[in-house]
Design a protein around this nucleic acid. Structure first.
Lengths: 194, 194
DNA sequence: AGCCAGCGGTAGACAGCGTCTACGCCACGC
DNA sequence: GCGTGGCGTAGACGCTGTCTACCGCTGGCT
């Protein structure tokens, strides 16, 4: 019992998170993770019967991280709902840009098998935070909160995705995604307050 | 020279398209495509030096298909810009839902390497069609056309993506994506005409 | 004290993958 | 009639995920 007191299970996930952040989602093979954790290639199998299980655990960590960042942002920005929503959106976009590999992994449903991901527990909290804010910023004539929040999230997500993909900057001629973000927020929530 | 007069290059792409539509993007390995095309596993290499090259060719076919569908839709729906935009959006969403594997492949920039995809020629026409319509439907106070079109596309894309992913229906409680689509269109383009 | 079960990790095998290379065949031009 | 080059074959290599047999250690029971 030297330095690595933590169990192998935890260590594998940590190594995986580190790896996906540094090298992208194509780098997180079972064997590579095992190698970096200093165990044999068969060891992970004890805790993660299949590759998908390990990837799902890593992705969950990503959702937890993103959710924590959003909550931290909202803790820092104590203003009107609209401003808070803007801050949330920026955090989301920044996360997608700076944690690209993780962000990609998180929404690769072909790799993750939602059952093992436990979508409900992982991504719903994030949506709830968004929906709460939307409920406050919502105007009477707007769509129901759930719909409005869903549409806004989709817009946010689409910007992150298409921006990273490269065609959006190309098509719009923009050099950063902030213009798009502003447009999206104004579209869904009305003109920005003074 | 029997039935398959077409060259191997074309045949490989065709087989790949067929395969990705039927079995999803994880199924389109070089060797499987070669097998189904009735050639040895090394044959594709003559035309596609690397896996990425073949995948990119398949994805380009996907973009061409989607673009053609959109244009066919717009040809059929000869109405006001707003109605035409709605039809375009529905076509986009339907494509994503019914051609899931292809749609996924098309935006897997980690697999495609935009250079080989030739983004400009493949996805820009589609965006142009959208932008033209947006220019017509745009209200004076709206954001510039390029930005408005970009934001709308992102919203559309995000709905397709998150819907397929599964959390959006879960969070919003909706059973189809039409509600979300309507909300998005109204957000970006104003209330629907009578 | 002695044994025995089981947990946790090792190590070898297997099929499949993308890529590389050497080789053949067949048609065409000189 | 012969050489040459395009097109496809076939085997190898290292990598992957998964399966299986094994082995040491630790704890509890008799």
């Amino acid at each position: 019992m030297s330095a690595d007191e933590t169990g192998l299970r935890t260590r594998l996930v940590a190594v995986g998170v580190d790896l996906v952040l540094r090298e992208g989602q194509s780098a997180i093979s079972l064997r590579e993770i095992a190698r970096r954790a200093g165990v044999s290639h068969g060891a992970p199998r004890r805790y993660f019967p299949t590759h998908v299980d390990l990837l799902s655990a890593i992705a969950r960590e990503g959702f937890a991280d993103l959710t924590a960042r959003v909550e931290r942002t909202l803790h820092d920005v104590d203003a009107d709902p609209r401003t808070r929503l803007t801050a949330l959106a920026r955090t989301y976009l920044d996360f997608a840009a700076t944690h690209r590999g993780m962000f990609e992994l998180m929404f690769r449903h072909d790799l993750l098998d939602s059952g093992r991901l436990r979508l409900r527990e992982t991504s719903l909290p994030l949506f709830t935070v968004l929906a709460d804010l939307v409920a406050q910023a919502r105007r009477p004539t707007d769509a129901p909160t759930a719909v409005l929040a869903g549409a806004l999230w989709a817009n946010l997500h689409g910007i992150a995705q298409l921006w990273a993909w490269g065609s959006l900057p190309l098509a719009t001629g923009a050099t950063d995604d902030d213009t798009l973000l502003r447009a999206a927020l104004e579209a869904h929530l009305g003109p920005a307050p003074a």
